[in-house]
Design a protein around this nucleic acid. Structure first.
Lengths: 167, 167
DNA sequence: TTAAAGTTTCAAAAAAAAATGAAAGTTTAT
DNA sequence: ATAAACTTTCATTTTTTTTTGAAACTTTAA
């Protein structure tokens, strides 16, 4: 396999993976492209490589910057804007985790708390509902906190956790 | 908030969360409904509660059973099939992790391995590509393994991991 | 064996999500 | 102040995904 083919395969695969996890294909593809580019890439180049429109490129670049995983770069004496991706994978994981937690998990937790707090009139049905949603709330909260700790400490997370537990 | 309202809110929220993570809304809603139902539910009831067609219900129930998180139940002397969800959340997490790993992560890893193995002709561009995809492969593999270990040991994962590290 | 009660399948329709592209907006150099 | 170079926005179109519903299929009971 030669370089161009490999690069294209990578971009397509990353795009498909994105779709499966609720991230739009183009957004994931742009991210993939920037990840493996050794230098900053212009919007023109992105449009050209991925065969997408200016509007599409612009909107998805904005979304990636909102996630904090793509940055704008200005080259001296050039009008045009260039883009780079966060290339440190630990840092990337931290940012993706934080955003997904903030945008999706936290609001879901809020709802779980609400619905598990109804004053049940003690039918078996209602008791089961309260019980199950309470468990779910606790579970999701625990998982969310764990992810937070893991990403906070990056590679170091296990060591710190162990230290904390042992003292 | 009364029970019916809370139940509905829960089902809607779980459906929305599903969509954001690449699981179709109806599938997530059926799962939510079964999770909080104290007894097995028929296809009729699911269609009625979620206002969906028979075909939709049938296909998504099949998908949930393929994931191993919903079961068919037969009631003595009844023709009709009933459905229940896996209600143990640790078990649910294990099954979801395993399926997503098998269906999505493993195939992506295979591609990452392929594309990172091109014989680079040592331009800076190609070197960077190989370097970055190799790092990505290692990272995703590590994350996938970690999730596997965590779910394998469920609540016990940290203890076992610590034991392993200390010996 | 047949018909009733139920389930599955899949082509077609509908809905939702994403992409386009042209007009409006911005910035910079002169 | 103007125009060139570039970016953003958003109504419309396209694509993708999901849903429908009716026909085919399966199972059970009489």
């Amino acid at each position: 396999m030669e370089f161009k083919e490999a690069k294209n395969k990578f971009v397509q695969t990353w795009g498909a993976l994105g779709s499966q996890w609720g991230i739009n294909k183009t957004m994931a593809q742009i991210h993939a492209l920037l990840m493996v580019s050794h230098e900053a890439v212009s919007m023109e180049d992105i449009m050209e490589e991925l065969q997408i429109s200016r509007g599409n490129a612009s909107m998805n670049l904005r979304a990636l910057m909102d996630w904090g995983i793509v940055y704008k770069e200005y080259k001296a004496g050039e009008r045009r804007e260039y883009f780079t991706a966060e290339k440190d994978l630990d840092e990337l994981a931290v940012k993706i985790s934080r955003e997904r937690s903030k945008r999706e998990i936290k609001p879901a937790l809020k709802v779980l708390k609400e619905v598990s707090s109804i004053t049940s009139d003690n039918t078996a049905e209602e008791k089961h509902f309260v019980d199950q949603t309470t468990k779910l709330y606790d579970f999701v909260l625990k998982a969310d906190n764990m992810l937070d700790k893991m990403t906070e400490y990056k590679d170091n997370w296990l060591a710190k956790l162990v230290v904390k537990i042992m003292k």
